Amino acid sequence: MRGRPVVSAPFCIHAKEITKRTLAEAWQRTAARHALLDEVGLPPVALSDDELEEWSELAEEAEDGGLRLLLDEDGT
C-alpha cells in the first residue's frame, strides 16, 4: 500500500497520508475527552518495525520513556 496513490477528485494523495491523517483526527477526538490528554498532540508515529525498534533503543539509552505509535503499511 505504501506509495500507491489514491485518487479522489480533484486530489491524488498517497494512501499512507490518508491513514496518518485519520489517525491524527482520531487522536484529537479521543484526547479531547480526557483531562490528562487534552491539548496533547499526536505521539510520534513509526512507519515500520525497524523505525520503532530504533526509537526504542534510543529512548532506552536516554532513559527517556515515551509513547510512539506504529502505523504498519497495511494501515493497522
Rank of each mutant, 00 (worst) to 15 (best):
L67D: 00
R21K: 02
A15H: 09
S56R: 11
G65V: 08
A46V: 02
L23S: 07
W55L: 00
H14A: 05
E63V: 10
P10Q: 00
A32H: 13
E17W: 06
E54H: 15
E51Y: 00
T30I: 13
P10G: 00
I13W: 13
L47E: 05
A9R: 12
L70I: 05
E17S: 09
C12Q: 14
R4Y: 14
W27G: 01
T76G: 08
E54R: 15
L47D: 07
A31M: 05
A59V: 07
R68A: 04
H14K: 11
D38V: 06
D49N: 11
H34L: 11
A35N: 13
G75F: 06
R33K: 15
L69N: 02
L47A: 04
L37D: 04
E17L: 08
R2F: 04
G41F: 02
L67A: 05
D50E: 15
D38C: 04
E54V: 11
V40H: 03
A9D: 13
K16T: 15
L52H: 01
A59M: 08
L52E: 01
A15Y: 12
D49E: 13
D49C: 09
H34P: 03
D72Y: 01
W55E: 06
V7R: 05
P43R: 09
A24Q: 08
M1H: 11
T19M: 00
R4V: 11
